[in-house]
Amino acid sequence: MATSRVRKRNFQQVSRPVNVVLNMAAMLVSIVCVFPFLFVVIISFTDEMVLARNGYKIVPEAWSLDAYRYIFKTGESLLRAYGVTIFITVVGTLISLVFNTLYAYAISRRSFAYRKFFSFFAVFTMLFNGGMVPTYIVVTQLLHLQDSIGALIWPMAVNAFFILIMRTFFVTMIPDAVIESGKIDGAGEFQTLFRLVLPLALPGLATIGLFSALAYWNDWFNALLYIENPKLVPLQSMLMRIESSMQFLMQNASNSSISTTILTEMPQETSRMAMVVLATGPIVLAYPFFQRYFVQGLTVGAVKE
């Protein structure tokens, strides 16, 4: 079975010339996408003065680590911030996978009597939102989450968009026969889901897992709203704070009090780029982990038939 599968996949491949064309197209797009990122890395290691004088150059006249030094100095607890971010990303992604998948699976089931209601219930939250202040009040005064790690996790635990994507995956990828077979075996709903359905839906899980990991990793807004304890500030929020304060002071440089009392020695542009490097480096490296499942799904799916 396995060998025949491999042979068949070879048959399926595109011809060599077409493959070359496809590769070239993909390469072109990739370069356009990666180039600015490369530039970000280069600028982050450029000397601020040289940058101010010459503008962006692929090979700058002088290199420097000042930007990183500045960030490590200003954001003393950079490592701790990494820790917080990693923690909320891992825990948050797991929680969000469980919540979203359960909901999505239920509303994907044709036999679920309240299917339409709960679908609408989710979609409606994508169209209307209560705004910042009411949400803040619920989170702080009803749930008392302020200044706790929960404030960084719970507000993003469920996402109607992910639910709907996952539902689509369930509907299109899981043949009814699989669920029927579960019923015949006498398996309960949960057993059917975990034993039979989820292994088939791995690409879907990987997708929403990746998306919610990214959302947690990149989130700075919840921390801005809910966190005052410096020990609980995640990375993106810390960097965003440094960045927006730099910008604020620059823009108010004509204010006499600010221009004469806040002595600015900030390597503004280079440290902005260094922040991008610090903030995205780890998650870009984690990306292949999710990528694995895009392929695995296919194989598992094939074996299952």
Binding site: A52, M250, A253, S254, S256, S257, S259, E269
Partner: peptide
């Protein structure tokens, strides 16, 4: 442009305007 940071860092400007204080 929102800030004059780069020309001022490089010293590549001649005149600008600001609000002052004593000993500014």
């Amino acid at each position: 442009i929102t800030s004059l940071d780069d020309v001022q860092k490089a010293g590549k400007w001649f005149i600008d305007r600001a609000a002052t204080t004593p000993f500014a």
